[in-house]
């Protein structure tokens, strides 16, 4: 978890991304697959710029929503990033 908290997620190179309404559609060339992201995942990928740390993204999300428990955001973000990584959308800077 320590690595994750300090890590800086970034979108993989070569992706084709289109933002559509509150969602996004992403083509991952390595897999040849197109994925549709919901608004939560889209908000997350917009913050995956290689500069924001996991902790920074948690902070940015909490700022946008009142009454959000930081611990819950951490848990959800962890899950979302793991899935985005598994799909070949997100990697970690310097990885």
């Amino acid at each position: 978890m320590e690595d994750l908290v300090l890590g800086k997620p970034i979108l993989r190179k070569g992706l084709k991304v289109r933002f559509e309404g509150t969602g996004a559609i992403i083509f991952v060339p390595q897999k040849g697959k197109t994925y549709e992201l919901n608004s939560t995942a889209t908000s997350v990928i917009k913050l995956c710029d290689g500069n924001n740390t996991f902790r920074g993204i948690v902070g940015a999300i909490c700022k946008g929503y009142e009454d959000t428990e930081e611990r819950m955001v951490e848990k959800d973000l962890n899950e979302i990033l793991r899935e985005l990584e598994q799909l070949g959308i997100v990697t970690w800077k310097n990885e």
Partner: peptide
């Protein structure tokens, strides 16, 4: 999390 939502429609086609 990955959407694949039947009501999600892109503004132009993505796959032809």
């Amino acid at each position: 999390m990955v959407l694949d939502n039947p009501t999600f429609v892109t503004t132009t086609p993505v796959i032809v």
